[in-house]
Design a protein around this nucleic acid. Structure first.
Length: 604
RNA sequence: GGAGCCGUAGUUCAGCUCGGUCCAGAACGCCGGCCUGUCACGCCGGAGGUCGCGGGUUCGAAUCCCGUCGGCUCCGCCA
């Protein structure tokens, strides 16, 4: 028989009790974390949000009714205890828990609810499969590490609001039911009942609305906001995710960067007690690609790409000099202490490189004072020496080379660099390597679509000195590619955690950029007409940034996946094992929306 | 769209190479009994399985083959 809560109130959280409470009569509410029945005395660890305390039910001290009830308590029963706090008898202290010097002698015991056999253990270390954890997320969240992640998340929200509100930013909500936009990710669509055949889209970001808020004279806007993108999932990608989004009027890059740095600094200080060094390092997009092979380099380890194209054009090795002749490049990585790799391991690296488009991978081991490799014979002594100098090669190193186009070479080496660093476990933990990537190209040529696409988004402003290039950019691919944008990304430990730009605030420039992107006047008018219109009515210069909140928090708590910092995340197929969404709806619901569904198979 | 790993009691796994001795086994959990200072309590006993699903091969399939569903990682995709 279960007890009613009635007017039973909690005086303390279990974890709040200290030796100062000794002698106090207290009431506690929570879950039975563990029960130890000795046939006589019964120990129950009562757990709540803030911690655990031992409750003692002693037949010689507690009322018989309470003792009989205590015998029935099992793991995760919901209980209430009224009792006196006492110092534990000498020798029975438990140093493993913060309240280990005290215990509560139960006077009154309430059993408020029972609990079925648990599908996953409520323990700190994770053993259960992720599928089970998501299905029973309420049990998973009872685990301390999950609770801590959600707590950190809460503290980041609060710090964000404190900092941005303190710097004159107004929190304004933007619509969740909005308009589908071309460019960018696939939209989630929501059918309109009132206008059958029409659809809302869930926002990929509040981009257009926050710009319009600037036109509206808000001056400084922010929002902690859900964004939706219907693309395939990854460990760091969910179909719905959260951004810290902000925008500033009359701002240039430095204003946005400095607010961003201030915010991140504030969050780290407030939540983790860490003093980040400001300003963050900055490198250009070009430098990032050429040194690290990626636009989100992890600077926690060195291993930079080395260009040996000039040397490669002279060596007899056909793969190298042919690549150069065709306008490609040859670059290498020095894998420190990599000479210990077996032939098999090197072959695995080659296969890995091929996955990313490499045709092959050349390698040279430096061991016993000389170079050993199938390609050494193509190098003269002098060339070997030169190569060693360029690569800063020392005894015990392994040099690997990719010869291909500019793009492929960098891309492959970028992935290799990361892969090898993981493999060799040379990435230091507990480092916070923030890095701004600046000077992005405005557009890049998309071979598949046979048009230019925006690297950032279509509302990103070109650099002021490049605006004149817009007029002839369509006819001149090289010229178009040389236009730099006013975009910037913030990278932390090799992950992109934020990105933004100074936007276009003039309708004439916006029109030219649309033209460059192959977006016709009609299409621009139809899809973004409301923004273009707004720009015509005194739009101030403005810019901003959005942080990927989930990624930021995942890195802060050391989680491998953003699912660990989201209360109710989705699986890789976009399912929610807890609620079983998405699911079929009734014929009536579909009819009301004027929707007919074509299924390959009938729903079961 | 593609590649890889995984799917066996409530949970985590072993068994699968080389089919039979497996009407499947361990640990934790659960249930019952004993136990008055434990805290991963202990001791004794017990229950618990559509081996993801479907098909095939075979005298015989958890094990081999094909398909399919689901979970995870990655590529493509993600302005």
């Amino acid at each position: 028989m279960l007890d009613n809560l009635g007017d039973f109130k909690r005086d303390y959280f279990a974890g709040e009790l200290t030796e100062n409470n000794i002698g106090d009569e207290v009431r506690l509410l929570g879950w039975a974390d563990s029960v130890r029945d000795h046939g006589g005395v019964i120990f129950i660890n009562l757990r709540d949000r803030e911690g655990v305390v031992q409750v003692v039910v002693d037949p010689s001290k507690s009322p018989e009714e309470s003792y009989e009830k205590a015998k029935k308590v099992r793991s995760e029963y919901v209980i209430g205890v009224q009792g006196r706090v006492q110092r534990r008898p000498v020798g029975t202290e438990n140093p493993k828990i913060p309240t280990g010097n005290i215990e509560v002698v139960a006077d009154k015991l309430l059993i408020l609810n029972t609990c079925d056999v648990l599908p996953l253990p409520i323990e700190d270390s994770i053993n259960a499969s992720e599928e089970v954890r998501l299905k029973y997320r309420y049990l998973d969240i009872r685990r301390k590490p999950m609770f801590k992640n959600l707590l950190v998340r809460h503290e980041v929200y609060q710090a964000t609001r404190e900092y941005l509100a303190g710097h004159g930013f107004l929190e304004v909500e933007t619509p969740m039911l909005t308009k589908s936009t071309p460019e960018g990710a696939r939209d989630f669509l929501v059918p309109s009942r009132l206008e059958k055949g029409k659809f809302y889209a869930l926002p990929q970001s509040p981009q257009l609305f926050k710009q319009i808020l600037m036109v509206g004279g808000i001056e400084r806007y922010f929002q902690i906001v859900k964004c939706f993108r219907d693309e395939d999932l990854r460990a760091d990608r969910q179909p719905e995710f959260t951004q810290i989004d902000f925008e500033i009027s009359f701002a240039n890059e430095e204003d946005v960067i400095s607010i961003s740095e201030g915010l991140v600094h504030f969050i780290f200080k407030k939540v983790l007690g860490i003093d980040l060094k400001l300003p963050f390092k900055r490198i250009t997009y070009k430098e990032a690609i050429e040194k690290y092979g990626t636009d989100k380099p992890d600077l926690r380890y060195e291993m930079e790409l080395v260009d040996i194209s000039d040397l490669a054009s002279d060596v007899e090795f056909k793969v190298f000099n042919d690549t150069i002749k065709k306008g490609g490049i040859v670059k290498g990585l020095n894998i420190k202490k990599g000479a210990k790799f077996s032939r098999k391991e090197i072959d695995e690296l080659t296969d890995y490189a091929k996955k990313f488009g490499a045709k092959g991978m050349a390698w040279i081991k430096i061991s016993e004072g000389k170079m050993s490799s199938p390609i050494t014979k193509f190098f003269t002594q002098e060339q070997q020496q030169k190569l060693k100098e360029k690569m800063k090669a020392e005894e015990g190193d392994l040099l690997v080379f990719i010869a291909d186009s500019y793009e492929t070479t960098h891309r492959v080496l970028g992935f290799l660099r990361k892969h090898i660093a993981d493999k060799l476990k040379i990435i230091p933990e507990d480092r916070w390597d923030f890095l701004w990537i600046v000077d992005f190209p405005l557009v890049e040529w998309d071979e598949e679509e046979e048009r230019f696409v925006a690297l950032h988004h279509p509302f990103t402003s070109p650099k002021e000195e490049d605006i004149s290039k817009l007029d002839s950019a369509l006819e001149d691919k090289a010229l178009a590619s040389s236009i730099k944008s006013r975009a910037y990304d913030l990278v932390l430990n090799g992950e992109e955690i934020g990105g933004g730009s100074i936007r276009i605030h003039r309708p004439d420039i916006q029109k030219k950029v649309f033209e460059l992107l192959g977006i016709s006047d009609e299409e621009a008018e139809e899809k973004f007409g409301f923004l273009i219109n707004a720009l015509r009515y005194g739009a101030p210069p403005h810019g901003g940034l959005a942080f990927g909140l989930d990624r930021l928090i995942a890195i802060m708590v050391g989680a491998d996946s953003i699912r660990e910092v989201i209360a109710f995340p989705k699986t890789q197929k976009g399912n929610c094992p807890l609620s079983n969404a998405p699911d079929y709806v009734t014929e009536e619901q579909l009819k009301e929306l004027g929707i007919t569904v074509e299924l390959e198979e009938e729903p079961s």
